[in-house]
Simulated assay, not measured.
Amino acid sequence: MSLTLQLPAEYGYVLGAATSFFFVNAYHSVQTGNYRKAAKVAYPNCYASAEQAEKDPSAFAFNCAQRAHANFMENLPTVITTLFIAGIKFPVLSASLGAAWAFSRVLYARGYVRKGPKGRYIGAAHTLFSFVLSLLSGYTAYSFVSPLW
């Protein structure tokens, strides 16, 4: 048995939302690099030491920027996969959720760096957006499998 998959005309919005993730990653990379330079944390060290971050606000800000970027990268594979899957059935909604996720990740990073760990909550809606994408993705997968039962 074969499956023919037709992408809706609006799937381009999904691709646009996914492309925005590359720019958010670039934003994170530049931000982290600038804070690394200001904190004088040499490569290959991923973070400033706890002692250094306690004494130096720029080292603390670097650690926050680095952690925000790492968190972005940890979540990106799941979000981009659910975006592509959910977009098959719900292209406009999925693209909107993907774009909102990208925007909230910028807010998350900015808040984290400026106010420390508690500042990241300004962009915490990314969790909701990724959860809804996961649900839509599951429904999309189910809709392809259920006719086979």
Rank of each mutant, 00 (worst) to 15 (best):
P8K: 11
R67A: 14
Q6S: 10
G123M: 11
S49L: 09
L5N: 05
I88R: 13
P57C: 12
V14Q: 05
G138N: 05
G33F: 01
F60Q: 10
L93M: 11
N34S: 11
V30G: 02
A17M: 09
H126S: 03
V79T: 10
V41R: 04
A141E: 10
I88L: 15
F22I: 11
F72P: 01
E10F: 03
P57E: 02
L128K: 07
T82V: 13
Q66M: 06
F23A: 15
A61E: 01
H28I: 00
F131Y: 11
Q31A: 14
A59W: 01
H28P: 06
G123P: 09
A50P: 03
F72T: 13
G98N: 06
V132A: 08
H28V: 00
A99H: 03
L107Y: 11
W101L: 03
Q66L: 05
F21R: 00
T4Q: 15
G119L: 05
L107E: 11
P117V: 10
Q52G: 06
F62T: 03
G12H: 09
P8Q: 12
N25S: 14
F22A: 15
L135T: 14
A26N: 12
L7S: 05
L97C: 07
F144I: 00
G116Y: 07
S134V: 13
F60P: 00
T4A: 14
Y142C: 06
A100C: 14
F21H: 04
H69T: 02
N34L: 13
C46D: 12
P57G: 07
S146Q: 10
D56P: 13
N45Y: 10
S104M: 08
Y112H: 07
R67T: 09
S104A: 08
E10G: 04
A65H: 00
L148T: 08
S58V: 01
S49P: 06
S96M: 08
V145N: 15
E74T: 06
R114K: 12
V106T: 15
E10K: 10
A18K: 11
Q31D: 11
I88G: 05
N34Y: 06
K89S: 13
G111D: 04
E54H: 08
V113E: 05
G87F: 12
R114M: 05
K55F: 00
F90T: 01
T127F: 08
Y121W: 09
F84Q: 04
A42Q: 14
